[in-house]
């Protein structure tokens, strides 16, 4: 077994090295990853059945959870060395998320949902403003790219949208302020097969436009062929 590639700054958007994570110190680890890298602009498909440590891996990449051992490096910053508050700020600045369901906050409008990261990240707000003049205009621009520009649609409360529309709003939110990494957790599982391909195309197009790398996690490998690289979580996780 060859030793993992050493880390170089800005070499990878995300890099895990010798990561061991257990829910409690002393209990058996649920995740043990020697090496996992995501290159800039890379589109990575990560397949794993439920219970395979998928959520844990995402929480580690997001800095919501911290491993007992090893390093989780995002854009050359080791998250394990940051405080909880700093990790939350770092996530707000550099990572966008798309969930499977319930992506939108019901009491916010579509545009407010999209601009939500700008409330927590000054960096992403500044980037949005630099592109379009204001966060709201950038949100509208992204929504237009995702075929959600219809004013009737925008006037609705977020929860009145169809699931497919909600997922696209979530993509706009993940991409606002051009974060370097977009993590999608079962983002297409609630969509039917035809919509799935179209959704991925949109996601890829917009990520390419903003220059974001994509880590797409799913239990269903049917979309794997659309990605640059496809990995079985089993292959990298050896608890």
């Amino acid at each position: 077994m060859n030793s993992p590639t050493p880390l170089r700054s800005n070499d990878a958007v995300a890099a895990l090295r010798d990561v061991v994570f257990a829910w409690q110190a002393g209990s058996p680890p649920v995740l043990r990853v020697r090496q996992f890298d995501v290159a800039p602009r890379e589109r990575v498909f990560l397949r794993g059945p439920s219970g395979s440590g998928k959520s844990t891996l995402l929480n580690l990449l997001a800095g919501v959870a911290v491993p007992q051992q090893g390093a989780v490096s995002i854009l050359g910053t080791d998250l394990t060395k940051l405080s909880g508050a700093a990790r939350d700020r770092f996530r707000a600045d550099h990572v966008g998320f798309v969930f499977q369901l319930f992506n939108l906050i019901p009491y916010l409008t579509v545009v407010e949902n999209v601009t939500l990261p700008c409330l927590f990240s000054e960096r992403r707000r500044a980037r949005a403003v630099a592109t379009s003049g204001s966060a709201d205009r950038e949100a509208l621009r992204l929504l237009e790219h995702l075929d959600l520009a219809d004013p009737v649609l925008l006037a609705r409360t977020a929860t009145d949208l169809s699931v497919g529309q909600q997922q696209r709003v979530a993509v706009a939110r993940a991409l606002i302020g051009a974060p370097e990494l977009v993590i999608a957790d079962e983002a297409t599982s609630a969509l039917d097969a035809d919509r799935r391909a179209a959704f991925l195309e949109l996601l890829f197009r917009e990520c390419a436009a903003t220059g974001s790398a994509v880590v797409f996690v799913s239990h269903d490998a049917s979309a794997a062929h659309q990605f640059d690289r496809s990995i079985e979580l089993r292959e990298i996780n050896r608890p």
Binding site: V64, G84, D88, F97, F102, I105, P106, L116, F120, S121
Partner: peptide
Amino acid sequence: RREMAILRSVGARP
């Protein structure tokens, strides 16, 4: 609890 995950994902602290 659902909103919480969304807010956490965009950078909200507990």
